[in-house]
Amino acid sequence: MTAKIFSLFVLNVFTANFILFRFLGMCPFIGVSRRKHPAFFMSLAVIFVMVFSSIITWALYNYILLPNGLEYMRTVSFILVIASAVQMIDMVMLKTMPALHRTLGIYLPLITTNCAVLGVTVLNIDMFVKDGKAVSGGFLFSVLQGLFAGLGFMVAMMIMSGIRERLDVIDLPRPFRGIPIAFIVAALLSLSFMGFNGL
C-alpha cells in the first residue's frame, strides 16, 4: 500500500508529470508561468480543484453512472460537475475566505476548461476502475492522484516561473522570446526529469 502510494507520487510529480510528460494543462502552464507569484496561487487553486473533482467524480461514476449503465455519460457529466464545482468553490470562498478569494479568485474560472482537471478525473477512472468494478482502495488512490497531479503541476509551474523571471532580464534571440523559449525550457526540463525513470 505504502509502496503503491509512493510510486503514485513519483509518477505524478516526476516521471509522468502532468505538464512535462502527459501534456495536460499546457495553456495555464504557458500563460501563467511568467511570474512566480501568480504561478504559485494558480497551482494552489489547481491542487484544490483537482482533489475536490477527484472526490466527486469518483462518487458520481461509481455510485450513479456505473450502476445505471450510463458510462457513456462520463465526459458530459464530468465536465459539468467540474464546472459547477469550480463555481461553488468560487462562491464559498468569496463568502468565507475573502482574502484567499482575492488571490485565487481570478484563476478559478480559468481552471474550468483546464484539461488537467478533466484529465485527472478521467485518468482516475481509467486506472482504478477495472471491468466495471472499482479496484480496492480505488477511492483513496483517486484522491491521492488528484493531490499528486496537482503537486506535479505546481512543481513544473514553480521551476518554470523561476527560470522565466530570469530569462526576462536576458536579451534572448528575437525568434525565441516569449512562448518559444518556454517550450524549449520545458523540453530540457522534461529531458532532465527522465533521470527519475524507474524510481
Binding site: 512535462l20 518559444p180 523559449i181 524549449i184 520545458a186 523540453a187 522534461s190
Partner: peptide, 9 residues
C-alpha cells in the same frame, strides 16, 4: 515527450 515540446518550440 521532450521531443514534442522541442519540435513545437
Amino acid at each position: 515527450p521532450p521531443g514534442a515540446l522541442l519540435v513545437l518550440g
